[in-house]
Simulated scan of single mutants.
Amino acid sequence: MADLKDELDTSPEVGELDDLPAPLPGEPSEPVTGPAEDSEAGLLDRAHALLDAHPVADGYSGLPWALRQRPSFDLELGEGTVDTDVPRMREGHVGALFWALHLPEEPTGEQAVGATLDQLDLVKTVVRAHPEGLRLACAAGPITDVRHFGRIAVLPGPASAAALGDSLGVLRSLRELGLRALTLSGVSWASEAGLTRFGEEVLREMNRVGVLADLSGASAETVRHACAVSKAPVLCARSAAHALRAHPANLPDDLLAALGAAKGLCMVPLTAEQTGPSVRDVADHLDHVREVAGPECVGLSGAYDAGTAHPRGLTDASGYPRLVAELLRRGWPETDIALLTWENVQRVLREADFTAREAQRRREPSTVKITELDG
């Protein structure tokens, strides 16, 4: 694995698109000069301009846990010991990102609640310590405001469903503290068989308070069940196309279609394990998800600082312009790229908040316990 990571972390020179196709027989060995905007440099210039207007809303960062292992750090000046810092996020045009509260070995019971609160406290501490670069924001409007002030918006989550135990009061408390997404896996009420009756109640309460359901790593039945039950859009924070790479967290076409029909969001991770070792491999997954689920249902998830190897040219948060340049080369309309990078996440957040306001008018906070529904 170390050899693979070393190979994948070898970045091309700045401005070079990876894996350019070899010339066909009879074609000149040097690229034919075309319009400036179609050249390699022209594509990168267009990518930067487009990302200036529509920055990346990154669906998953493992930075909180990575920082917990370090005695000191400075994300605003630059932090070479991690994949993500403010200078590289600015270079990559990252405007917002979800900071995961997951732990390498997820605890259970009361330990899970305490560990999640510790992670949430760390997120807030780190954001407060970097006021020139970061701001906490949990809704579409404030995220846009943060961007206009030249800062990067941080959204806490996803957290592990184990943090709830069997208490929906814990869910509401975590939401009050800023939690924005919860991963529905690793618990008895969201299993291979799908959601239990208590699982459905958890999802309804998540809708009521505006916590997004993250289905990455959930069973196929849980994904189908959640798409059918949830009144708010669901998301898969780290899922690519299973048809292109048979990773257990990647989604087969029938689930991608169900996610698209539910107006959910599949956030394709920039990891070699799930998408492949090159920028073009990642673009292949984005093409596939866009075709099957629709352009309004595809997003990006860097998955940086989560302990995984990344494709060449995408080894840290500065690499997004290279990926967008590849999509432009493939003929993606700028409107679809704007959806991919920024607008789809904004839509999901707005719809989740609208659903929560409507649900709170009709439904009181649930106090149901797992034993009352699942026995």
Results as ranks from 00 to 15, higher is better:
T341P: 06
A338L: 07
L349V: 04
T81G: 12
S29T: 12
A356V: 11
R361W: 10
D6F: 12
P23G: 09
S29G: 07
R280E: 08
G302K: 03
Y60Q: 15
V268I: 11
E79G: 00
V94A: 05
E132W: 10
L286Y: 02
E16L: 14
G299P: 00
F98Q: 02
S239C: 07
T222A: 09
T308A: 10
S72H: 10
K5R: 15
V14L: 15
D74Y: 02
V32K: 14
D374R: 12
W342D: 06
R224K: 15
L174I: 08
P248Q: 12
P295D: 04
C138S: 14
V368M: 10
P158V: 01
D85V: 05
E372I: 05
L134C: 08
L51M: 10
A237M: 08
P233R: 04
F73I: 00
V368C: 05
D3V: 15
G264R: 02
R280F: 01
A261Q: 15
D374N: 13
I370C: 10
D316F: 02
L77K: 13
V298M: 07
A338P: 02
R128D: 12
T196E: 05
R46K: 10
P23I: 03
Q111I: 11
R361Y: 08
D45G: 12
V154N: 00
R204N: 11
R238K: 14
Q360L: 13
V223H: 02
F198S: 04
D38Y: 09
L171E: 06
C236E: 07
E201T: 15
E334F: 08
A66K: 13
L300I: 13
D145G: 10
A213Y: 05
V279W: 00
V211I: 15
D281A: 12
S230R: 04
G260F: 06
D6T: 13
G133S: 08
G26F: 10
D374F: 08
A218M: 01
Q119C: 09
A243C: 13
D74K: 01
G178T: 13
E326W: 02
V82P: 00
C236Y: 11
E296T: 12
D52E: 12
E358P: 03
G78K: 07
T315K: 10
T10S: 13
V202F: 06
A317M: 11
D374P: 13
H242S: 09
G331F: 07
R68H: 09
D118S: 08
L203D: 06
C297K: 00
A218T: 04
A246R: 15
W99Y: 07
I143R: 01
P277N: 00
A232T: 11
A249F: 13
D145R: 12
E110S: 14
Q119G: 04
L215A: 04
Y304F: 15
L314M: 13
E27A: 14
P104L: 11
R362L: 14
G319S: 06
W332K: 03
D6P: 02
N207T: 07
H288D: 02
R128E: 12
G199A: 07
E326D: 09
K369G: 04
D166Y: 05
P55T: 04
G194A: 03
L286S: 02
T144F: 06
